[in-house]
Design a protein around this nucleic acid. Structure first.
Lengths: 188, 188
DNA sequence: GTCTATAAAAGGATAGAC
DNA sequence: GTCTATCCTTTTATAGAC
């Protein structure tokens, strides 16, 4: 997971994996038919670990469902800062690196995106009363993913977290704009 | 350009470049010290060609500055459909593939993003009177890039252009929401 | 299941004639 | 400037003893 995250798939050699994991060639190939199967296992680990690895850390001490969306984005901000703006989303980077990905690999990446978007959509669903009826919660959640991925991409390319911050600020304006309308209706 | 776009940087071999361009090893290395220098030339070609290759085709017959933003996004939609949802933004893909990119490479990628965002910001600037004073036009333009990159990423991963469409629809709602407010003020 | 050694291919880059 | 031939390294994967 660490090597594919830090170096990408193609630039991570089997030799890298062996030395990093202190495992010998024979042992690795005993469990994994080939390199792609290691990738699949990594993608499955991300998919199955989204709650423990991502959501629980992000949402510790945050109860408001809408703020949980921004707490999740804030976790990525922390990652960007902690890595001195070299952070890349492991799934997004793989999704754009692998140009002729095996269908099974694409499906695992899609499952990761879906799990992420599901979690955000559930936040909006839990705050449904604060949004106008008919609000496209799925679209809003997918946009959160795009804001995160795009913000991470720009922050890393420019080595400046401000690009991520502006992306989130725009998104917050959109979300709060929707909520304000509802508040106005409630006030009326 | 074609090979890095279709296969990415690491997965494009010098041999690929030689056979695709019908050039011999000696000739290529006569002009380019190494593979990275070919990449730099490609990034410079994108950067210098943004108007002729991207904006002019996108904006043919579109005069309204705000609609030009969406016409640009529509060009990406066309690329997604034409490639049966395998399209990837050449710059975005490289930006996420190259994890330890040379500073000069990162700078060329950043220049590409900046050129793109500049063009979108100029559209909003040309329609400044339709937006509230103090509107963050730069942030809005950067968000357009994130919407495009994220939408392309999702459309390719899911092999479904609807993910791109929903991203653009959300963005249009945001932009038109801002404009509506201004209209309301003008009406008052 | 794990170990070392190595096969077999592909990679970037260079040499030196023309 | 272009050509062919090739060097040297790295790569994924396998063999076969333990």
């Amino acid at each position: 997971m660490e090597l594919f995250w830090l170096k990408g798939y193609a630039s991570t050699s089997i030799a890298d994996i062996l030395s990093r994991s202190q495992v010998n060639s024979g042992s690795l190939y005993h469990f994994f038919p080939g390199k792609q199967d290691v990738l699949l296992a990594v993608l499955e680990a991300y998919r199955d670990g989204i709650r423990k690895m991502l959501l629980e850390p992000a949402w510790a001490g945050v109860d408001d469902p809408v703020e949980r969306v921004f707490a999740l984005l804030a976790l990525y901000r922390r990652a960007i800062v902690d890595t001195e703006c070299t952070y890349g989303c492991p799934i997004g980077s793989l999704a754009l690196e692998l140009h002729e990905a095996d269908p099974i690999v694409r499906q695992r990446m899609a499952e990761n995106f879906t799990g992420w978007v599901d979690a955000v959509e559930e936040c909006f669903a839990a705050a449904a009363h604060r949004f106008p009826a008919g609000t496209d919660r799925r679209g809003l959640a997918e946009l959160a993913l795009n804001v995160m991925e795009g913000g991470v991409m720009q922050a890393r390319t420019y080595r400046d977290v401000a690009f991520f911050d502006r992306a989130v600020a725009q998104y917050r304006k959109l979300v709060e704009g929707l909520m304000v309308k509802e508040t106005a209706l409630q006030g009326a």
